Simulated scan of single mutants.
Amino acid sequence: MMKALRTAVCLLAAFGILAPARAKVRQLSPAMLQQRIAAWAEPHVSEDHHEGQYMRQGCSHANLEQLPDWKGLPVKVCTYTDTQFPKNPVKATAYLLFPSADQLASWIVNACVDAGRDDLTTCTGRLASRLWMASNAQFPVAGYVVEPAQDKKWKYPNEPYCFLFRDGVSVTTASYPDTTHAVDKACGPPAAAFEAPVKAFSYGRPVSATRKSYTAAGGTGDVGDADLRSPQWAFAVGQAFRAGWRAERNLLFRAAVADLSACDGNIWTDERIPSSCQ
């Protein structure tokens, strides 16, 4: 999916995630953490500087006639070239939202506060790291996200695959029934981006919330059956993200707190991600 291990090491270093650790993680106030996270994110998610946001290419304001639920939000349509496979670059189009540094900082800190975490510094550090590795702070409203095969058992383990997203979740539709590798260096069909999902997979972007964590965090939307990959989950994620856009809190971030672990890294320390997480 969008858990971009291909960029994780260099981006974690760029954000100071692999910087020298303090002897002891100092617990900071929510207000101080929010300021620091905003400063951490600003150079990488701003309009002028967005290193690592690999889909933020060729972007313009989106016509949302075919995505009416998203009207009123600053959705961009971006036609980008993914170069993770230098000999096989892939062109794709996605409809995206790019939260600001201040939005991200507020959502991260309030998620940890609302979860009742005493270790706010560690919680926010892990959640910020999880956000970056899961999505590079890009929210896919609709369209294709290019990623490597998720398993060496896939038919083309060394080629780029086109993951179709809708409302922040990887989905399939009537005309795109299976995730396939890129054909002729492109993803398609384009119309599939606007079709109703038939299946919705596990993770809700931008922080990889799950059906279980969403419900446990107080989410009331119908998430459907996880085993059947019911499409209701995509609608619930989209609704939650829209509700949080102009608010200080985002339910998807609160949901992700329950799943935080050493596998997520930590932007405040040099804590290494265990090899067992790969």
Score class of each variant (00 low, 15 high):
2 M>C: 06
5 L>D: 05
6 R>T: 15
13 A>M: 05
14 A>N: 02
15 F>M: 10
20 P>N: 12
25 V>M: 12
25 V>Q: 10
26 R>E: 14
26 R>S: 13
28 L>T: 02
34 Q>D: 00
37 I>E: 09
40 W>V: 00
43 P>L: 00
48 D>Y: 00
49 H>E: 14
54 Y>F: 15
56 R>N: 04
57 Q>W: 08
60 S>L: 15
65 E>F: 08
66 Q>D: 15
67 L>K: 01
70 W>Y: 10
73 L>E: 02
74 P>D: 13
76 K>I: 08
85 F>V: 13
88 N>C: 12
90 V>S: 01
91 K>I: 14
92 A>R: 08
92 A>N: 02
93 T>L: 00
93 T>E: 00
94 A>F: 02
95 Y>P: 03
104 L>T: 00
104 L>S: 01
108 I>F: 04
110 N>A: 11
112 C>I: 01
116 G>W: 04
118 D>W: 12
119 D>N: 14
122 T>W: 05
124 T>M: 03
126 R>Y: 07
132 W>G: 01
133 M>Q: 12
136 N>P: 12
136 N>I: 05
144 Y>F: 13
145 V>I: 15
146 V>K: 02
148 P>E: 13
155 K>Y: 13
157 P>V: 04
160 P>Q: 11
161 Y>K: 07
162 C>Y: 00
163 F>I: 04
166 R>M: 06
166 R>Q: 12
168 G>R: 00
169 V>A: 03
172 T>M: 09
175 S>E: 08
177 P>L: 02
180 T>H: 10
180 T>L: 10
181 H>A: 06
187 C>Y: 03
190 P>K: 08
192 A>Q: 07
193 A>G: 08
201 F>C: 07
205 R>Q: 15
210 T>N: 07
215 T>M: 12
219 G>R: 01
221 G>F: 10
223 V>Y: 02
224 G>I: 05
226 A>R: 11
228 L>F: 05
234 A>Q: 02
235 F>R: 14
238 G>Q: 04
240 A>Q: 08
240 A>S: 14
243 A>P: 10
243 A>T: 14
244 G>T: 09
245 W>T: 14
246 R>Q: 15
246 R>H: 14
247 A>V: 04
247 A>W: 13
250 N>G: 05
251 L>R: 06
252 L>Y: 07
252 L>S: 05
253 F>K: 10
254 R>I: 12
254 R>G: 13
255 A>N: 04
255 A>E: 03
256 A>P: 03
258 A>R: 06
273 I>C: 11
276 S>M: 09
